[in-house]
């Protein structure tokens, strides 16, 4: 129980977490400024706009909170069972060591500042890219979509919506994190030796810190901050991500990126931001009937996956049957 409570508390007090209270506060400040400037609202109106009861107290938002709390319990029990970044790093490190044409610390003479900067940038970029690619798969592969749909079933967005995630999807995300960290740590330590370090501000990767300070929490919110068009080729703006959550046909499978928009640009899924006030969010009605029911959110994805697998198996067995018949037929001839 104490573990559970401290785990929850940590999410809001640890600057490595997105919903760290400091970042939330900054997001509010940024929202106010944005509303004052672009919408010409008064300060009071801006506050009213931000703390909109229809959004923050919606059924969707309440189910976000339930999922957040229930998922903490899952994380407490499941995460110790998963392979850690250190295990992966050790494995890769020893693999590299076994290769004759590579030497430990081959490039350890490189200036320290360069090593540290490269490591910090590398891990940030690799992390962002793997997030993009996994996210893309989440949308393209039916089995994964069954899980990811839970996140998209939110009909209003708040910063806590990032925890509206199916536990199995959480497992995939955790493994992704382990792999990216494991790869970055092991290769850098192998090639550059003991000088590898991370540039941090209050203990957080400086790039991640900048991203969070610049209002990363607004991605999941009703504040549709738009960037200049050129910047939206490089960084995903909050409005661009809100578009990703839209039910409209033309917004399907767009803007998968976490921080960088470059990946979407390269893969052809980039969509510039629009005014988000009229967007309708969620998934199509025929995909989920009661989107905020805990049964729908936890159990349905599993049953769906079973159905998909069953279907595939059927298809496969049918396929092999046909093949077999064909072979029999041919040998007869």
């Amino acid at each position: 129980m104490i573990d559970f409570l401290s785990n929850i508390f940590e999410h809001f007090s640890d600057p490595r977490k997105r919903v760290f209270l400091g970042y939330i506060f900054l997001s509010i400040v940024i929202s106010i400024l944005w509303l004052l400037k672009t919408k010409r609202l008064s300060f009071k109106q801006a506050l009213k706009y931000i703390f909109n009861g229809k959004v923050l107290l919606s059924t969707s938002s309440k189910s976000d909170i339930k999922l957040f709390l229930i998922n903490r319990v899952f994380v407490l029990f499941v995460s110790p069972l998963l392979v850690t970044q250190l295990a992966i790093a050790t494995l890769i490190y020893h693999f590299l060591k076994s290769l004759d044409w590579l030497d430990v610390g081959m490039f350890s003479d490189t200036p320290k500042s360069f090593i540290i900067f490269s490591f910090t940038a590398f891990i940030f970029i690799l992390d962002d890219f793997t997030k993009f690619i996994i996210h893309r798969w989440m949308h393209k592969w039916p089995i994964l979509w069954s899980l990811h749909k839970v996140h998209h079933s939110a009909t209003t967005l708040t910063p806590l919506t990032i925890y509206r995630t199916h536990p199995l999807e959480g497992v995939i995300f955790t493994l992704r994190g382990s792999f990216t960290q494991g790869i970055s740590i092991s290769t850098f330590v192998f090639f550059f030796g003991n000088n590898v370090d991370l540039i941090t501000i209050i203990g957080v990767n400086i790039f991640v810190f900048c991203f969070n300070v610049a209002g990363a929490n607004l991605r999941h919110s009703h504040i549709g901050i738009q960037y200049w068009k050129w910047l939206e080729y490089i960084l995903i703006s909050p409005a661009q991500h809100q578009l990703h959550h839209s039910v409209a046909q033309e917004h399907y499978d767009k803007n998968f990126g976490a921080t960088l928009a470059i990946w979407d640009w390269i893969f052809g899924s980039l969509n510039h931001s629009e005014n988000t006030e009229t967007l309708s969010l969620g998934v199509r009605n025929n995909e989920i009937l009661a989107p905020h029911n805990l049964y729908t959110l936890y159990i349905m994805p599993i049953t769906e996956i079973f159905v998909i697998i069953q279907h595939k198996m059927k298809y496969l067995s049918e396929f092999f049957k046909q093949k077999l018949i064909k072979i029999k037929y041919e040998t007869k001839e």
């Binding site: 970044q85 536990p167 995300f173 740590i185 330590v189």
Partner: peptide, 19 residues
């Protein structure tokens, strides 16, 4: 070592965050 220290600094990978 070095690797464990870096892993500690990166703050673990367990997250159920949906960016």
């Amino acid at each position: 070592n070095q690797m464990a220290a870096l892993a500690e600094k990166l703050g673990g990978s367990d997250s159920a965050e949906n960016d």
